[in-house]
């Protein structure tokens, strides 16, 4: 056999890998869900809020994007206790990844809303809607579908960033995988199992995402619609 894997060993450590996967899964799901909620809320304030609030949110976005994820985790775990905020390893992971997810989500929400043709907002205002109504009833429903693919990408990155939690000894996949390697000096078997587990978790997200995309595909033929065709014409003229 070209590739001789120790199947028996793999079977033997599978319970540990599965337990670690469950931790990674829990942290990922919590961070993705909380990140979307926080990101959507802040994203709307980023678009609609008073100028100082918009600036504040933009600083938050710049901070999240400009600082490596590892530093976020270290800051929450090691620095926050000096401000009398102490989180255990698990919740440190959830909070750090939520903040990272939200930071990216805000920008995705903003750019998706701004990508909606200007006429949609004007038409909404012209029938007496205020900006908030125009956002909720007209812009967001259309932006929502456009942001799903980009969002999925970012969230996949967030899930993979959970591997950084190994540095604060969260018993997630990467940490457990590392421990197994150094305990048994078996590389390929462990790495393959860990990779497959990440693939499964990220695939769940991808699957959910494509389901959502199809489910909200009412405006999918937009590319071929006379409206978008027309707006292209308008830009050329």
């Amino acid at each position: 056999m070209l590739l001789a894997l120790d199947i028996q060993f793999m079977w033997q450590v599978l319970p540990k890998i599965l337990a670690a996967s469950w931790v990674t899964f829990q942290i990922s799901v919590l961070a993705v869900v909380l990140g979307i909620i926080l990101g959507l809320a802040l994203g709307m304030f980023r678009v609609l809020g008073a100028p100082p609030i918009q600036t504040l949110i933009q600083w938050f976005v710049d901070f999240v994007r400009g600082v490596p994820p590892l530093l976020h985790i270290a800051f929450i775990y090691f620095a926050l206790p000096s401000f009398h905020i102490q989180l255990n390893e698990f919740w440190t992971g959830v909070v750090a990844l939520t903040i990272i997810a939200a930071g990216y989500e805000i920008e995705i929400v903003r750019s998706a809303i701004e990508s909606i043709e200007r006429g949609q907002r004007e038409a909404a205002l012209s029938i007496g809607m205020n900006e908030r109504m125009a956002l909720f009833y007209i812009l967001l429903p259309q932006a929502g579908q456009r942001m799903i693919p980009t969002l999925t990408n970012e969230l996949a990155n967030v899930i993979k960033a959970s591997s950084l939690l190994s540095v604060i000894s969260v018993n997630e996949l990467t940490k457990v995988g590392n421990a197994l390697i150094f305990e048994h000096f078996v590389f390929a078997e462990v790495l393959i199992q860990v990779a497959v587990m990440y693939l499964i978790i990220v695939s769940l997200l991808m699957w959910l995402s494509s389901w959502l995309e199809q489910h909200f595909s009412l405006t999918q033929p937009l590319q071929n619609s006379p409206i978008s065709h027309f707006s292209e014409m308008q830009e050329i003229r």
């Binding site: 006429g119 038409a123 007209i138 409206i227």
Partner: peptide, 18 residues
């Protein structure tokens, strides 16, 4: 509120696509 009294029809229609 005041805009309710003024209907507008645009060159590009701008129907709500969704």
């Amino acid at each position: 509120h005041k805009r309710r009294d003024i209907g507008m029809v645009f060159q590009g229609f701008h129907l709500f696509a969704h």
